[in-house]
Design a binder for these strands. Sequence first.
DNA 1: ATGCCTGCAAAATATTTGCATGTAA
DNA 2: TTACATGCAAATATTTTGCAGGCAT
Lengths: 132, 132
Amino acid sequence: MRDLSGKLRTAGLRTTKQRLALADLLFSGGNRHVTAEILHAEARTNGLAVSQATIYNTLNQFHEAGLLREVIVEQGRSYFDTNLSDHHHFYVENESRLIDIDNQDIAIGDLPQTPTGFEPVGVDVIIRLRHK
Amino acid sequence: MRDLSGKLRTAGLRTTKQRLALADLLFSGGNRHVTAEILHAEARTNGLAVSQATIYNTLNQFHEAGLLREVIVEQGRSYFDTNLSDHHHFYVENESRLIDIDNQDIAIGDLPQTPTGFEPVGVDVIIRLRHK
DNA sequence: ATGCCTGCAAAATATTTGCATGTAA
DNA sequence: TTACATGCAAATATTTTGCAGGCAT
């Protein structure tokens, strides 16, 4: 992912040192699923001094800005997914690991009618897996 | 729901006063979605003195015993569903409210192939709603 | 220069655990 | 009687918030 500065600016976020470094960790490789803890550890490993609060603030801001998708599969911990395409997830329970399901590999037919007065804002499908 | 004692015993749980009272709250009406907080408040309203720890222990034991299904839709809070039939959920984000989707109203076609070495242990579909 | 951002620590929230006591079997 | 359950408080874990100081614009 090039031009992280542009990406942040487009999202309405200032290009601070911490945000740029975290964006680099998040968006420069392939698609990723991270928790605050994972990202914090990675930042420190890469010599970036960021506080936990900034990790949380940044993840939430990126999420609000539409740069990350939040995935809730475990109680007490949030995952953030850099893959913004319409897709769903396998969740390996023993390993606390998420795996993307390619959109062409799943088809949801006959979604139920949305109750009157409401509008759908998203559909999450989670297939929970365990080791055989 | 009659014979709560039998229900607990069948599940391998002792029929204590607190468990029976909580089971009554959970299983005597129609299907319900409760959080620990909701159940605790209800118990107190009904004059039952139970500690928070017992609420959590009981919900977890009922879940382990297969009497409740856990539904994770919000970070930081677990819901427990008394409806054990195969079904999915609407989640009204503004109200923190779950609504069952009748199984005949949704069809998931072409589930993706489970990665080798794993077996599926459940599929959760959550349709998030907002007020129009 | 101004307003948003960061770090730190403390607070808030949800849940779990240790231990002494109580109670179902 | 004995093993499991309960209550209470403290511990744990994750996330959020307040505030003083720092930095992007």
